[in-house]
């Protein structure tokens, strides 16, 4: 089943500049989709359009088959959203905030209490439930926002920069929690971020956006297949035969472009057979960052 369908979405705030321009893609149920782009690319605008808060100037949007322009309330029942601009009531405690939002989603007080306990334990913030949100640290505020997004058993999660403002340790921890919770609850995740390192850890599908335009869409291998990405065998050693086609990068370090892992293995064998000594061998493949910049600088 298609979780998200965007068809030719265009959005402008001032009627002159398009914040989103002819955006089209589809995401299947269960995917962890990384919507990647720099600040101001249009990611948050896309999230707001998908949740019915903004109307596109043109195009159609469906979430689990529901037309967003007609069934906004149905969509809000199945979507959990975490954005940087959707705050909490700072004078109320974490549990009071979650109780309020849970009740608005139709839970009874008892159901809500159980659900709050579950999600706050999931994100390791239960101990702070009676503390006012205004006293929470940045990391805790991210966690309580995640709790709210998960609270009503959504089918799809929209997470806008869930790790921004966090130190690396906390960011990795939040990433792990999202990944585990999404797998446990079998969710579709729409993750917006410009932190490619963290996206690479959990995403199964990617969309690159910049200045409101889609640069690329697909799995990592699909996106890789569209580019002339080169895999390089890098070795550090002695007596390496240059005739084998290696480029001497620096003292003791040599590179050669290879077609595949098998090609690399054969080459290493040839180096050894020709009397070379290998201290270290590594295949340098493109990571998500390399891929993203390749699309961005097209």
């Amino acid at each position: 089943m298609k979780a998200i369908e965007l068809a030719n979405i265009t959005k402008s705030y001032d009627g002159r500049t398009d914040v989103l321009s002819e955006i089209s893609f589809e995401i299947n149920e269960g995917e962890v989709f990384g919507f990647l782009g720099p600040n101001g690319a249009g990611k948050t605008t896309a999230v707001r359009i998908l949740n019915g808060l903004l109307e596109p100037n043109s195009g159609n949007v469906r979430v689990y088959g529901n037309d967003v322009s007609k069934n906004t309330i149905e969509i809000h029942k199945i979507c959990g959203v975490m954005t940087e601009t959707a705050n909490f009531y700072e004078k109320l405690t974490g549990s009071e905030n979650l109780m309020f939002f849970g009740r608005l989603h139709g839970f009874s007080t008892t159901e809500c209490s159980e659900r709050i306990k579950h999600v706050m334990n999931l994100f390791d913030i239960y101990d702070a439930k009676d503390k006012k949100v205004g006293e929470y640290s940045t990391g805790m505020k991210k966690k309580i926002a995640l709790c709210r997004a998960f609270l009503h058993n959504p089918k799809i999660l929209f997470l806008d920069e869930p790790t921004s403002g966090l130190d690396p340790d906390a960011a990795r921890n939040v990433n792990r929690l999202i990944s585990t919770a999404a797998a446990e609850e079998r969710l579709t995740v729409f993750l917006c971020t410009h932190q490619l390192k963290y996206a690479e850890e959990i995403c199964t599908l990617y969309g690159f956006i910049d200045n409101g335009k889609m640069l690329g869409f697909g799995t990592f291998n699909e996106l890789l297949g569209n580019k002339n990405c080169l895999v390089t065998l890098e070795i550090r050693g002695k007596n390496i035969d240059i005739e084998l086609g290696f480029e001497n990068k620096s003292a003791g370090k040599y590179n050669k472009v290879v077609a595949s892992d098998i090609d690399a293995a054969a080459l290493i064998k040839q180096v050894i057979n020709s009397g070379g000594e290998i201290y270290e061998a590594r295949l340098n493949k493109w990571n998500l960052e390399d891929l993203y910049f390749a699309y961005q600088h097209e």
Partner: peptide, 11 residues
Amino acid sequence: GKTLESLFYTP
């Protein structure tokens, strides 16, 4: 307080 957006995400 930027809580209006939070309310708009509820059903």
